[in-house]
């Protein structure tokens, strides 16, 4: 870890002014990923701006019937918030599927969106990594890539985004509110994270001088028919091999609307409008679910160790849809898969 200076920002105005002035500064909130990366010398900010004292820690109703989650609300506070558990149980479930309760007590909503890949090469500065040092190459592509992407990867980078929460936010069509000295803007969740392409060092479309102020949830929370199904190498406290967030609106056994997002398979939570369209107006049954899974995985490509993820996803998607259709979402506590 390199030396850095530390300041606290008391106001949003101050925070965005400070960050705009110093390109080597970073905001720190929960710190669970940033400190981790700093200890490994993957990230070396010259200055940390502590934003924990900004008033971005509330969950409030929005004018359009949704909820606004302040960027500094911790993952725990979101997951156990009565409005969330009642109206957006999919989000609560996804959060509780990730990390540990201690980490969730620290990690914030905004920080969760900005966490970086857990690719072990990215973390190990003795190895080549285009995300860490552009142009050095990707060690994973011909190396140990069991945890890596099967969708949307490039020759430059096959890293995955590690978040569970973001997979649910993707399904919920959340909107990320950001601001800077230049003004505020809203980024639809699907446009927030990037695919690696030829610039894998850039994870998101957030600009360097911008700060996330909130994540807004639209009114529809799919509280009746949803499930978050996460498959991993042990029963808890592990990143996803594949995870599925599924949400349905049903009318007498017929699907009015279907939304599916995948975690652990790409550089961003993966959604595919065509796959969802396939389900619209169809009976909620296994055949249709399997067709949607095939469509979601179209174009999937393995790199050796991670080939199995394609088949695993094809099995997990119909399962999550089945759970959602039955109104029996996967418990994050009882490990038997329903």
């Amino acid at each position: 870890m390199n030396p850095f200076s530390y300041t606290r920002s008391g106001t949003l105005e101050n925070a965005v002014t400070e960050i705009a002035r110093d390109r080597r500064a970073k905001f720190i909130a929960g710190g669970t990923n940033l400190i981790d990366l700093m200890k490994e010398n993957v990230t070396r900010p010259s200055r940390l701006i502590d934003i924990n004292h900004l008033s971005l820690n509330k969950i409030e109703e929005t004018d359009n019937g949704g909820l606004r989650i302040g960027a500094l609300v911790t993952n725990s506070d979101v997951a156990y918030h009565p409005q969330i558990t009642r109206r957006y149980p999919l989000l609560a479930s996804a959060i509780l599927a990730g990390a540990s309760h201690q980490l969730r007590n620290m990690a914030t909503t905004g920080g969760n969106l900005l966490q970086r890949t857990r690719c072990s090469y990215f973390y190990d500065i003795t190895t080549a990594c285009n995300k860490r040092e552009p142009g050095t190459g990707c060690s994973a592509i011909n190396g140990f890539n069991r945890m890596h992407a099967i969708l949307g990867a490039s020759e430059e980078c096959i890293a995955t985004h590690p978040s569970d929460m973001c997979v649910a936010l993707m399904v919920l069509d959340a909107v990320v509110q950001v601001t800077s000295n230049r003004g505020a803007r809203a980024i639809p969740f699907a446009e927030f994270h990037r695919l690696p392409g030829d610039a894998p060092q850039i994870d998101t479309n957030l600009q360097p001088d911008e700060i996330i102020t909130s994540v807004d949830l639209p009114g529809e929370g799919f509280a009746g028919n949803h499930s978050y199904l996460k498959v991993r190498d042990r029963a808890s406290y592990a990143f996803a091999l594949v995870s599925v967030a599924a949400a349905l609106t049903l009318e007498g056994g017929v699907i009015k609307e279907a939304r599916i997002a995948l975690g652990g398979v790409a550089h961003k939570p993966w959604r595919n409008a065509e796959a969802e369209a396939l389900l619209k107006g169809k009976p909620a049954g296994q055949d249709n679910f399997r067709k949607a899974a095939e469509a979601l995985l179209s174009g999937a490509r393995g790199f050796g160790h991670n080939n199995f993820k394609i088949e695993l996803a094809k099995r997990a998607i119909p399962r999550a849809l089945k759970q959602a259709a039955a109104g029996t979402p996967q418990s994050q506590t009882i490990k038997k898969v329903l």
């Binding site: 857990r118 072990s120 973390y123 011909n142 945890m147 029963a235 592990a238 990143f239």
Partner: peptide, 25 residues
Amino acid sequence: SVVDQNLGRIMTHNLADYHVPVNAD
């Protein structure tokens, strides 16, 4: 402990990548 044969280096060199049982297991 997975060795990256290109590098001759163990890449699951932390407790997130080297899985040991947790309570829920």
